[in-house]
């Protein structure tokens, strides 16, 4: 009898210890880690495989990343072929919880209102530049998509840790209401600064432009991933002049020289922005990242 009681008490203690363990979340991009932390707070540990100063197209996976994923409860990926390198890591990590199709595998692009998706069966090849057939994968720095990402993370974390579901919901509601109140400020800032049209370096601002009602009149790259030619830059300069564009948006890890070349000939202002959380020292979390982007685009106005 004593033995049974002791065993029961021991199991109860172990059960508490096990359930008290925070949910281990591993993400490919730092924005997802930031959002997971907003929702889970002290009940999750979130680690991003990529740093905010890196380009996800060019990240080379390392064996230590596989170790980070080995005992993860949840893997969050961008999808749409942007972080395709994660699959070699999944194979090496041997964590059955985060394999494709399992509850610990979450591709948040599924819940995004995708843009630039090629119609089913459409031909996609390198003559069109580096395009993604399943749509433009650069949605993370769009706050409307950010809310959709947060919703999916909240739902999945709640499924994996049902005892914390109410807590996750409360934090999610708080996160969404902070985004909503910020949204008004961000819109006002862009309106007051008179930013209606922009030029970008890479085709990575479509979602942001949709949310804030901006018109992208051209890109420095003639096609995604293709370096600019002098002829293309000349055409772009003419377009900037005729459309009276005020700002060229370029992510801080891209070559600044083409933007400077355009700026010297048109007077257009260069907004050099981070693209992911941790991409600059001010972009410490998801909301401060969008703050930083809007502030830089509006010239701090």
């Amino acid at each position: 009898m004593k033995k049974t009681m002791f065993l029961t008490a021991f199991l109860m203690v172990m059960n508490t210890i096990v359930f008290a363990k925070p949910l281990k979340v591993v993400t490919t991009l730092p924005d997802f880690a930031s959002i997971a932390e907003e929702i889970g707070k002290e009940k999750v540990t979130a680690t991003s495989l990529m740093r905010g100063t890196q380009d996800p197209h060019y990240l080379e996976p390392t064996p230590s990343m596989a170790i980070t994923m080995r005992d993860a409860d949840l893997l969050i990926i961008n999808g749409m072929e942007l972080d395709i390198w994660v699959f070699s890591l999944i194979n090496v990590a041997r964590n059955p919880k985060i394999m494709y199709g399992k509850s610990g595998y979450l591709d948040v692009s599924v819940g995004i209102d995708r843009m630039e998706v090629l119609p089913a069966g459409a031909k996609a090849d390198a003559s069109m530049g580096h395009i993604h057939a399943s749509g433009n994968p650069h949605y993370t720095h769009d706050p409307v998509s950010g809310k959709a990402v947060a919703k999916q993370i909240m739902e999945r974390m709640s499924a994996l840790s049902p005892e914390n579901a109410d807590y996750f919901r409360k934090n999610y509601d708080d996160f969404v209401s902070r985004i909503d109140s910020k949204m008004f400020q961000w819109r006002e800032k862009l309106r007051e600064a008179g930013i209606e049209k922009i030029v970008t370096y890479h085709r990575s601002w479509s979602y942001f432009a949709r949310t804030f009602g901006l018109k992208i009149i051209g890109e420095i790259e003639p096609l995604p991933g293709i370096p600019p030619s002098p002829a293309h830059l000349s055409q772009l300069i003419e377009k900037i002049k005729s459309e009276n564009v005020k700002v060229v948006v370029t992510v801080n890890f891209y070559d600044i020289r083409p933007a400077k070349f355009i700026s010297e000939r048109t007077g257009i202002r260069i907004a050099k922005v981070p693209m992911y959380v941790g991409g600059s020292k001010e972009a410490v979390d998801y909301i401060s990242l969008i703050d930083m982007i809007v502030n830089t685009i509006t010239g701090g106005k």
Binding site: M115, P119, G121, A122, K123, G213
Partner: peptide
């Protein structure tokens, strides 16, 4: 906000349709 999003979406879809129409007829 919703109207703006829908308007932008419509304009994006229109642009997308314009740019992909020839490709569709050739390859689909």
């Amino acid at each position: 906000e919703k109207i703006l999003q829908l308007e932008t979406k419509i304009s994006n879809l229109e642009q997308q349709l314009q740019s992909s129409e020839p490709a569709q007829s050739n390859f689909f």
